[in-house]
């Protein structure tokens, strides 16, 4: 056994050496700073990091802060609608394009194009479109429809949906590209077989094709989830958290406390909460991806 291991190591020594720098970066830069942030969340750090220990005091303050509560609630709403709409829309776009439409590459480019833009640009574009003084409402008033109202970015009740609109526009192209790649990999024999059996196309997609695309679906859901958790730039560009605190998100809370409010302790407590949330959400995905697969294989 020991000899086996040494032989294995010897044979792959070059590969291990090549992997070392990356492994070091991951351990020190990622895990190290993560551990350091968690450590700081238990200190009373304000502008400068301090090495004292105040227990869960920062967490108590955090969950007592109404802006943090608002931010979490907003993130939940954004996450739900963004995931749902992006995914459904992305799948539908992919399926439509898969029907061998004319000018397919044009459509593909058009739908994927928003994803090539940064969130800041996407946010600014939609901010202008929805701004009552510059955008659609202004144009409609100019055309004589003075009763027309489209004030989403300045209306505290609707501002979250304005952000969802912008992010869906930005993200659904990615889902489309991933699913489309999967659809192109589906064996044409399957389609022929179902056609002979007279099964309607929608049924084939729902019951046969989509389950086959499980890896693509999981990948796109993971990518979308990551962009939800780190959602910051689009909010800053579109509303800067306003009106009031109506569109605040946790990442913005963390950045504001870290840099503008000189409150490192509270900011790291908030980022630790986000880290734990992400781990909790990702755990089932990781479990289904790795453990169930290896279980089946053995």
């Amino acid at each position: 056994m020991g000899a086996d291991l040494t032989r294995h190591v010897k044979r792959n020594i070059v590969a291990y050496i090549a992997l070392l720098p990356m492994a070091a970066v991951v351990i020190f830069a990622y895990l190290g700073t993560m551990a350091w942030s968690v450590r700081l969340s238990f200190s009373s750090s304000k502008l400068l990091p301090r090495n004292d220990f105040v227990g869960f005091a920062q967490y108590v303050t955090l969950f007592d802060t109404s802006r943090w509560q608002t931010s979490l609630g907003n993130l939940a709403i954004i996450a739900f609608f963004f995931l749902l709409i992006c995914f459904v829309l992305g799948c539908l776009l992919a399926i439509f394009i898969d029907q061998n439409v004319r000018a397919e590459s044009l459509f593909r480019t058009v739908f994927l194009y928003p994803y090539a833009m940064s969130f800041v640009v996407a946010g600014l574009i939609w901010q202008w479109i929805l701004n009552p003084d510059l955008g659609i409402q202004h144009t409609m008033h100019g055309l004589g429809f003075s009763g027309f109202v489209l004030d989403w970015v300045v209306n505290p009740q609707m501002v979250l949906y304005a952000i969802i609109l912008a992010t869906v526009w930005h993200g659904s192209g990615l889902v489309m590209a991933l699913i489309l790649a999967g659809l192109r990999g589906v064996d044409t024999e399957i389609w022929k077989a179902t056609r002979i059996d007279g099964i309607p196309a929608w049924r084939v997609y729902v019951s046969i094709v989509l389950p086959m695309l499980r890896p693509m679906i999981i990948t796109s859901l993971v990518l979308l989830s990551i962009s939800i958790v780190k959602m910051y730039d689009v909010v800053v560009a579109m509303t800067n958290g306003g009106p009031g605190t109506a569109s605040e998100v946790p990442a913005k809370f963390i950045m504001d406390n870290l840099f503008e409010r000189a409150n490192i302790g509270l900011a790291t407590a908030a980022s630790t909460v986000m880290l734990v949330t992400v781990l909790l959400v990702m755990a089932p995905v990781i479990y289904s991806q790795y453990f169930r697969k290896s279980g089946r294989a053995s």
Binding site: P156, D256, R261
Partner: peptide
């Protein structure tokens, strides 16, 4: 006041302006 205290004060002001917060709630906060 410290920056983080001033930050909380500004959060109250912006909520007071943009939500139907009552005067009593505002003073408590």
């Amino acid at each position: 006041m410290e920056e983080f205290v001033y930050g909380s004060v500004q959060d109250i002001v912006t909520e007071l302006w943009n939500t139907p917060m009552t005067v009593d709630q505002a003073i408590d906060r």
